[in-house]
Write a protein that binds this DNA or RNA. Sequence first.
DNA 1: ACTATGTAATTGTATTATACAACCATTTTC
DNA 2: GAAAATGGTTGTATAATACAATTACATAGT
Lengths: 143, 143
Amino acid sequence: MNEHVLEMIELELAILIRRTTSISSHKKFGNLDRSAYLLLHQIISNGAAGVKALAGEFQLDISTVSRQTAALEQKGYVYRIPDPLDGRAYSLQITELGKKEYTENKRERLTRIVEVLESWSEEESKVFGDLLKKFNQCAIQEQ
Amino acid sequence: MNEHVLEMIELELAILIRRTTSISSHKKFGNLDRSAYLLLHQIISNGAAGVKALAGEFQLDISTVSRQTAALEQKGYVYRIPDPLDGRAYSLQITELGKKEYTENKRERLTRIVEVLESWSEEESKVFGDLLKKFNQCAIQEQ
DNA sequence: ACTATGTAATTGTATTATACAACCATTTTC
DNA sequence: GAAAATGGTTGTATAATACAATTACATAGT
């Protein structure tokens, strides 16, 4: 593989992440930080899940996700369903309010993306999306 | 623009950033966190620069970069050159040790990228790199 | 059946990256 | 030359995270 291409990917990823994280932390997008947003996404699209499963999904420590989900519950975005087979466990289910907040947030994020991609062709955007998705999938298979 | 494509990009970017930041902070790559790595990159490829310029480049607060560069100096990766025309200012220049550390770190990062892109064609990788770069450029023009 | 060990989750504590505000020392402007 | 602006540092607060200890329940081995 061409070294130059790899270097470009490596550098641009680093830059992307640097810039995006400095925007998103502290000046959080709407009401939800990135963690909260993705937790809600996960619960909405893959159904109720426990803390452990969510932590695994994002490669975060369970304690971190425990606090994050507690915050979501406190805001009324999710609620707990005790696991009928296991007295220790429960799963987190989305509420209407949570769905609303997620959708609102997603709209804001999309607006931002649209601005950035203003000058892109449909084709180019599609390729970019596909490759990002593929990259994420490949990345999770590693490690 | 097709809504579905935008949603995919938005989601995959969020996932990418979530995963990558949880890997890189706390389990930092080698000796350099992402900030330090990009600061060294910037100094190496664009020459000596002051704290303010570096902060602008990464959209970080000056105080943050001041501390980060102080840490780099303390480790011997950069040194200060007082600005001959302005007694308040100076620029940060890379040292041999800094260059070495950067190169070493870059190699580790590349190794990781190579693993992820193992199954990708050269062509696909190139397109991905180009689009990432374009995305970053477009993103900086906004905002 | 009882004890061991394992496991889902929470809570305590420490660290790190960050921002904002106050400040210091110069430089520029009027 | 005084006032305002500027480059940089330091104090302080916050947020996200990890790791360790703990709690409460579950499972396995004898």
